[in-house]
């Protein structure tokens, strides 16, 4: 919030000297919005699949950092010719080594257990993984920890681009925040 006030003020002062930040033409807004919408249309990713992807990413990253899950943003963006999937995660707290190791160990154990029970039934592997997600994810111990610590306001933002081809452009991120 306070940042917005400052940028507004900054623009106003600039405006006094006749150098206001260049006004974006409405057709540029249309072109940019269309590009994002078309990228989503063309990926065949339904909202359910995006939701699932988001959930899986949270699950994966929660092993290493503690994040504000509500504020996690997952968006498609256009960077030149390339389409990029932008993931923005406000980090609440870095995890210490023991926590990370424990999380990895717990995951490996769960995986081994799943493999044992499915070793003779490959066809149902996918379904079983789905179930496992639904059962385990919400009451995961990682999640509980985070709820407790969520008041911690020393937030630091990690931005990760899932698209491996693209390079990160820090200016874009700042705009978004």
């Amino acid at each position: 919030m306070s940042e917005n006030i400052f940028t507004e003020l900054y623009n106003k002062i600039l405006g006094l000297f006749g150098q206001a930040a260049p006004k974006e033409d409405s057709k540029d807004v249309a072109v940019n919005r269309l590009r994002v919408v078309l990228m989503q249309d063309r990926t065949n990713l339904t909202p359910e699949l995006l939701q699932r992807m988001r959930k899986e990413l949270i699950e994966l990253l929660s092993k290493y950092v503690e994040m504000d899950k509500e504020a996690l943003e997952l968006n498609f963006e256009q960077e030149g010719e390339q389409m990029a999937l932008m993931l923005s995660i406000p980090v609440v707290r870095a995890k210490d080594e023991e926590e990370i190791e424990a999380a990895i160990k717990a995951e490996e154990e769960a995986k081994a257990a799943a493999e044992d029970s499915n070793s003779d039934d490959d066809d149902e592997l996918d379904d079983d993984l789905d179930d496992e997600e639904d059962d385990d994810f919400d009451d995961d111990d990682l999640e509980d920890e985070e709820v407790e610590d969520s008041e911690n306001d020393s937030e630091e933002v990690i931005e990760e681009q899932v698209d491996p081809v693209e390079e990160e452009k820090p200016e874009n991120k700042k705009d978004k925040e």
Binding site: D25, S26, K27, A30, V31, L34, L38
Partner: peptide, 16 residues
């Protein structure tokens, strides 16, 4: 309107 950038131009549409 395309000239005043209040509407997408033919180039915009063709490119998209």
């Amino acid at each position: 309107m395309a000239a005043s950038k209040d509407m997408m131009s033919k180039d915009d549409v063709v490119e998209i």
